[in-house]
């Protein structure tokens, strides 16, 4: 019983190692990239288009609309980063239907890496949008006293992102594993379905939180207190 796919190591050479997390991530990357390439190879600009193209268009436009609804004025600029976050987490959760598959998001290393990416991306987008001064000033809003709290908030939400996703994905896998040993018939299927739902919800939460953070960092005016969705 592995707590994380990191523990399944295929190959190791000193510091370098090839564990199941990295391998499955590559697999997901391959599926996403090749699938996109295959579908977008013959894109139609007319009124008639293939079903796969329709699917991708729906996904892309919905994501774009979500980003816009959160409050980012130029969603196309943030779409690759935020959209990929969602697609990767969602696909990682969806693929749990395949037996023998370990979701890479069930590894704290992966979720920490994603949270770090968000942690870096938020100030980057903020500085690009508002400049150094504008972005740094947001840490002393509304008063100078708030500076330490703002920094703590920045760090803690990154930690929360990583642990929330990891906990949910890992628990799903763990529950299935435990249930298989207790009641091997029928009940694990129900839990599997529930796990799929949880995975999709987590993908959405991860995506929307990252969007909200970036929106807060890039907002020129005084940001409204955005209630953080708790789970």
């Amino acid at each position: 019983m592995h707590l994380s796919p990191d523990a399944i190591i295929f190959w190791q050479h000193g510091f370098l190692k090839l564990n199941a997390t990295i391998v499955f991530t590559w697999g997901l990357m391959l599926v996403l990239a090749v699938g996109s390439k295959l579908i977008t190879r013959r894109l139609s600009t007319g009124l008639k288009r293939s079903r796969w193209q329709n699917l991708l268009e729906i996904v892309v436009t919905l994501t774009e609309k979500q980003i816009e609804e959160v409050g980012l004025r130029h969603p196309k600029k943030y779409l690759p980063f935020l959209g990929t976050l969602f697609l990767f987490v969602a696909l990682a959760a969806l693929c749990t239907v395949f037996p023998g598959y370990e979701p890479p998001t069930g590894s704290l290393s992966t979720t920490a890496a994603l949270a770090l990416c968000v942690f870096v991306a938020v100030p980057l987008f903020g500085i690009v949008e508002r400049g150094w001064g504008g972005y740094l000033k947001s840490y002393v809003q509304p008063t100078f006293i708030m500076l330490p709290f703002n920094i703590i908030s920045e760090l803690s939400r990154t930690l929360a992102l990583a642990v929330r996703l990891f906990g949910n994905m890992m628990s799903g896998t763990m529950i299935i594993g435990i249930l298989l040993t207790i009641t091997p018939f029928i009940f694990p299927i129900v839990m599997k379905a529930l796990g799929l739902l949880t995975g999709m919800v987590q993908a959405y939460i991860f995506f929307i939180l990252a969007t909200v953070y970036i929106a807060a960092a890039t907002r020129v005016r005084k940001p409204k207190p955005e209630p953080e969705p708790t789970h």
């Binding site: 990191d6 996109s36 977008t40 959209g83 704290l108 290393s109 992966t110 890496a113 994603l114």
Partner: peptide
């Protein structure tokens, strides 16, 4: 629970995936 090499590799993987998606999915669509 945390393997720093894996974290770095996954971050890199994610950035590569972002680039790939941007190249093959978002732009054409």
């Amino acid at each position: 629970l945390i393997d720093w090499f894996t974290i770095a590799a996954q971050a890199l993987n994610f950035l590569i995936l972002v680039w790939l998606m941007k190249r093959f999915l978002y732009k054409p669509i």
